[in-house]
């Protein structure tokens, strides 16, 4: 079976205005809307398109997190994933531990492709895909803006600082997604109903043999230093004047 595994992270919704707790222990998460990490949504969309092109047979969505992460996996199932696996834990799971957990799932599921977001919009670490590829000893194609399967390999176009780079990777491989890879589909109500019947396995983190927890100790979380309030200028002449005074023009 040609299988694609998609890693999905439950994160604070893209549109939520983040507030830092006054005691410096973290950000406010109580009552905050949670969603699928937008980059992972793109990863799932790409997997579904590959399957719809007849180049894969099954899409498995996997996540690591609290019981509530089942909601995000249900969203993935509603989008079109065939089944889902949640590795349940309330511990802090850093990217290296996440990669170790995903490796155990990879060894079990034997996917030809693992697709995940290039970063999660909560910790912005941008590590998990590369770490999984390293531990798995397989290719990585990060920041993908185009993925074409060609037999036992894939051609991936990557968004790099210089422009667009294309690499060829043998399968199986890990792909991490950039913003312009695709536009994820909207979930329709009947799909949400159907998703309720799709299989969603929940396994305990301990069963994977991976231990999670904080190795990078978060000592303090604080809001960024605010910029001082600027001034409004009336017209172009006023702007040019102000910039000239500061020696910027």
């Amino acid at each position: 079976m040609r299988r694609i595994m998609v890693c999905v992270k439950r994160v604070v919704d893209y549109n939520v205005r983040i507030r830092v707790k006054p005691d410096g222990t973290g950000v406010v998460l109580d009552g905050v809307k949670m969603s699928v990490n937008p980059f992972d949504e793109i990863a799932l969309e790409e997997a579904l398109r590959i399957k719809e092109r007849g180049e894969a047979d099954e899409v498995v969505a996997v996540s690591i997190g609290p019981d509530d992460a089942q909601q995000q996996l249900r969203t993935a199932l509603a989008m079109g994933a065939d089944r889902a696996i949640l590795v349940k834990t309330t511990d802090v799971v850093e990217p290296l531990a996440a990669a170790q957990v995903f490796l155990t799932l990879v060894q079990k599921e034997q996917p030809q492709l693992v697709i995940l977001g290039k970063q999660a919009i909560d910790d912005d670490a941008a590590q998990t895909g590369q770490m999984l590829a390293a531990l798995w000893d397989r290719p990585q194609a990060t920041f993908a803006s185009k993925v074409e399967l060609a037999g036992a390999a894939a051609l991936v176009t990557r968004e790099v600082d210089a422009g667009l780079e294309t690499i060829e990777v043998d399968l199986p491989a890990v792909v991490t997604t950039d913003l312009r890879l695709n536009e994820p589909r909207y979930v329709k109500l009947p799909d949400i109903m159907k998703a309720k019947k799709k299989p969603l396995d929940v396994v305990e983190l301990a069963s994977t043999g991976v231990s999670a927890g904080e190795t990078l100790k978060s000592v303090l979380v604080e809001p960024p230093k605010p910029r001082s309030k600027g001034v409004m200028v009336k017209d172009v002449a006023g702007l040019v004047d102000a910039l000239k005074k500061k020696g910027l023009l």
Partner: peptide
């Protein structure tokens, strides 16, 4: 982290 909205000392 959080698009620069929370600065963490690690």
């Amino acid at each position: 982290t959080y698009a620069g909205n929370a600065i963490v000392t690690v």
